[in-house]
Simulated assay, not measured.
Amino acid sequence: MRRILIRSGDVAIRARLLATPTADRIWEALPISASVQTWGREVYFRTPVSQDLEPDARVVVSKGEIAFWPDGDAIAIGFGATPIAKRGEIRFTSKCNVWAVAIDDVDQLKGVYPGEQISVVEADNDDQDEWQTSPSTSRRTATRRPTQQAAMCSSGDESGSAG
């Protein structure tokens, strides 16, 4: 099973990749490093990946689902209401492909601010039991490939419009 680690400062979130074309493209592009942008209770960041919408792409996601926003070539992680959300939902501005599910609590992303660096790396799979039993404060990293830099999302809209 493919797993990643998303890290920004003291925040570290492990996630399990789904069997989707988007997950495959992101996996092949690892490691990814970028500058974070926020939009309400969403963090997003540009990737070197481009991917079309998948048949099951959607605008509303569940907490813990990690999405790819094709309109911005960005990974988007919602952990609460966005400016256009209806009560109790996580709503992006346009359809996104869900490609991974967080193992750890995405509420940690409250501590990530615009402009901070974020990275996505292949996580160590040496100890399967640790993935099932370790606390969400795990700070494991993987450094198997050289880092690729991704530019900050530039939508030309300083209001922070996001996926």
Score class of each variant (00 low, 15 high):
residue 53 L to G: 10
residue 66 I to P: 01
residue 75 I to S: 09
residue 64 G to E: 01
residue 13 I to K: 04
residue 17 L to N: 00
residue 72 G to I: 08
residue 11 V to P: 01
residue 65 E to S: 05
residue 151 A to H: 04
residue 43 V to N: 03
residue 152 M to L: 10
residue 103 I to Y: 02
residue 63 K to H: 04
residue 136 S to L: 06
residue 157 D to M: 03
residue 54 E to V: 06
residue 84 I to D: 06
residue 106 V to T: 14
residue 13 I to S: 01
residue 43 V to D: 03
residue 114 P to I: 00
residue 35 S to P: 00
residue 156 G to Q: 08
residue 1 M to D: 12
residue 93 T to Y: 10
residue 91 R to S: 01
residue 160 G to L: 08
residue 133 T to R: 14
residue 107 D to Y: 09
residue 96 C to P: 05
residue 134 S to Q: 14
residue 133 T to K: 11
residue 25 R to N: 09
residue 105 D to S: 07
residue 46 R to V: 09
residue 141 T to H: 02
residue 150 A to R: 00
residue 162 A to T: 09
residue 87 R to H: 11
residue 129 D to V: 15
residue 112 V to D: 07
residue 146 P to R: 01
residue 98 V to E: 09
residue 150 A to G: 01
residue 119 S to Y: 06
residue 122 E to W: 07
residue 134 S to F: 10
residue 86 K to N: 07
residue 127 D to Q: 13
residue 69 W to T: 06
residue 57 A to P: 05
residue 152 M to Y: 03
residue 75 I to D: 08
residue 143 T to A: 14
residue 100 A to G: 00
residue 78 G to E: 03
residue 93 T to K: 03
residue 5 L to E: 02
residue 118 I to S: 03
residue 133 T to H: 10
residue 55 P to T: 11
residue 9 G to F: 05
residue 8 S to F: 00
residue 88 G to T: 03
residue 102 A to Q: 01
residue 74 A to T: 06
residue 7 R to G: 02
residue 60 V to K: 10
residue 46 R to E: 13
residue 63 K to E: 11
residue 27 W to K: 03
residue 138 S to A: 15
residue 144 R to N: 11
residue 47 T to I: 12
residue 154 S to N: 14
residue 56 D to R: 12
residue 3 R to E: 01
residue 153 C to A: 08
residue 85 A to M: 02
residue 1 M to E: 12
residue 151 A to M: 10
residue 59 V to F: 03
residue 36 V to Y: 01
residue 115 G to C: 11
residue 147 T to I: 13
residue 76 A to V: 13
residue 69 W to G: 15
